[in-house]
Design a protein around this nucleic acid. Structure first.
Length: 229
DNA sequence: GCGACAG
DNA sequence: ATCTTGTCGC
């Protein structure tokens, strides 16, 4: 497990963070379809916090997209780099997530984030930000609708409904398990919304949350627990 | 001005 | 995110 410090020049205020988003959002690539679902590799990333100690742990778990079997993993710990502010989540999670991704011994393929990408107040959520910084294809899969609205998708697994910011479709509510609350999928970088949903559904054959996120979640929690002093 | 608000 | 017991169910 690697240790990271807050990068030099990392935004220290909300104003600086919003300015950084405005400066980077133009680099998001939205005209690529993305990797075909069920082939290659898919990597889940997630973060856990100990606000008492100001410590954060991140995990990246690489899965074989066809079998969902883990083929590589890495963790990183660091100091909390930003408070939680809706719309600025990336500044709290990215330094440690980047370190975990860089510690992997192979290409991550598609990166699945716990949160949003395009579905964001300034259209530049965590998944898009991480995509721009790494150049990797990314998507966001969130557990809550944030500030957006949606109609309940039909009950069968695989049903979707638009996730809306006014009249603009910024993502999709996707039912990954029949009769269970949907997850909220949005594009991050270099992936289309349809492909993002297809990947998400393929990653959730048994549970609501994608296997990639479940694996990364348990790993970063363990890494946090095993962190001393 | 007030409330809501990814993790 | 995190704080937290028991409890229902496969």
């Amino acid at each position: 497990m690697t240790t990271v410090r807050i990068p030099a020049g990392w935004p220290a205020t909300e104003e600086a963070a919003r300015a950084a988003q405005d400066a980077l959002r133009g680099r998001v690539v939205l005209d690529e379809p993305g990797p075909p679902p069920g082939t290659g590799r898919v990597t889940g990333v997630d973060v856990a916090y100990d606000d008492e100690r100001g410590v954060v742990a991140a995990a990246a778990v690489v899965l074989d997209a066809a079998t969902l079997a883990p083929v590589a993993e890495a963790t990183a710990v660091g100091e909390v780099s930003f408070p939680y502010v809706p719309g600025l989540l990336a500044f709290r999670e990215i330094p440690t997530v980047l370190a975990a991704l860089e510690a992997l011994d192979r290409d991550p393929g598609l990166v699945v984030c716990d949160g949003y990408g395009l579905a964001h107040p300034r259209r530049f959520g965590l998944a898009s930000h991480l995509g721009v910084l790494t150049g990797l294809p990314t998507i966001g899969v969130a557990k809550n609708p944030f500030t957006f609205t949606y109609e309940e998708p039909d009950a069968p697994r695989g049903s979707t409904a638009p996730l809306l910011a006014g009249a603009e479709e910024v993502g999709r509510a996707l039912r990954t398990q029949a009769g269970v609350k949907p997850v909220f999928v949005s594009v991050g970088h270099r992936v289309s919304l349809g492909i993002a949903c297809a990947h998400t559904l393929a990653l959730a054959p048994k549970y609501r949350i994608p296997e990639s996120t479940r694996r990364a979640d348990s790993l970063c929690r363990r890494a946090l627990r095993e962190t001393v002093a």
